[in-house]
Design a binder for these strands. Structure first.
Length: 289
DNA sequence: CCCCAGGGTAGGG
DNA sequence: CCCTACCATGGG
């Protein structure tokens, strides 16, 4: 992994098999990036704009300083982790082998805890385009302006002391109450996200689920995507279908310490690869049984 | 009109 | 423990 300067950009020498930025930033784990050309992703994270252009052997970080790269983006994109041993282990399973051939360049992005927590509260019984839309409106209305029409994800303080009416034009539906409850619990000290980072995962699950609207699935997503607990295993409607079709006898126990990463490969595979599962299963009623 | 989406809750068996 | 109705909203 070599990094060098090219005018205002930083160029990272890294093969696309090691990290595919489009698959990574557009696989339903984070919601603030969009594809701005056929090989460019642009979005906002940690209060900054990030625009990445990828070719076979390099990623261009547009208008990025060496300090921001070192202090923010290496960690955000999980670049210090070697995924090869894990991918070799997961390849012993036929389904994961196919999922890795389809999109093995996915990494688990290290998102801000509060942003991930709120994002996955919004995600419940919702679809990804609508989640992205609501989050963008939330940022535009309550987040701090970064530049032009770009806004940071709102902080706890940005969102506290708001009423349901304040959220009425965000399109959250009934989920506004959940956000209000979450922000209140953080503000009054009932919930401390920094403490959750150091908790045993079972305690973290129980603590997160004290927030209204957070059940098993959202708690697992928050832990996986907001706290980098890669053993967390969110089961949504897609993973339910995958478990039923591929793993009727249960998910392989030898993967349990990294089940969250495996889950993400499968999620992306089954959701976007049209011949991953039979059509009748994809369009079938997922709520039955 | 229907069903579905990175579900959870309350309430009743 | 299980099951079910219901919860807003927009896309297909």
């Amino acid at each position: 992994m070599k990094i060098y300067k090219r005018e205002n950009d930083l160029v990272l020498d890294i093969p696309i098999e090691q990290i595919n930025i489009i698959d990574t930033l557009d696989c339903g784990q984070c919601f603030r990036f969009t594809k701005t050309s056929n090989n460019t992703m642009t979005g906002i994270a940690h209060g900054r704009v990030l625009s990445l252009t990828q070719t076979k052997n390099e990623i261009v970080f547009h208008d990025t300083s060496q300090d921001d790269f070192n202090d923010i983006w290496v960690n955000y994109l999980d670049l210090h982790t070697d995924y090869n041993p894990l991918k070799t282990l997961l390849s012993s399973d036929d389904t994961l082998k196919k999922a890795l051939e389809y999109a093995g360049g996915i990494r688990i992005v290290r998102q801000d805890s509060f942003e991930a927590l709120l994002s996955f509260i919004i995600s419940q019984n919702n679809n990804i385009p609508r989640i992205k839309n609501s989050i963008n409106k939330l940022c535009k209305k309550f987040g701090k302006n970064i530049i032009d029409d770009v806004y940071a994800f709102p902080s706890v303080d940005d969102l506290h002391n708001l009423s349901k009416e304040d959220f009425s034009d965000i399109g959250l539906g009934y989920r506004d109450d959940y956000i209000i409850d979450c922000v209140n619990k953080i503000k009054n000290g009932e919930l401390n996200l920094e403490n959750i980072k150091n908790m045993d995962i079972e305690d973290a699950r129980i603590t997160l689920r004290t927030i209204k609207g957070i059940g098993p699935k959202v708690a697992e997503c928050a832990l996986l995507f907001g706290f980098y607990r890669i053993e967390a295993f969110p089961i949504d409607t897609w993973i339910k279908k995958a478990l039923k079709y591929y793993y009727p006898n249960g998910f392989p126990v030898q993967f349990q310490d990294y089940a969250g990463i495996a889950q993400q490969y499968i999620f992306h595979y089954i959701r976007t690869c049209k011949d991953a599962v039979p059509e009748e299963l994809k369009s079938g009623k997922s709520k039955n049984k």
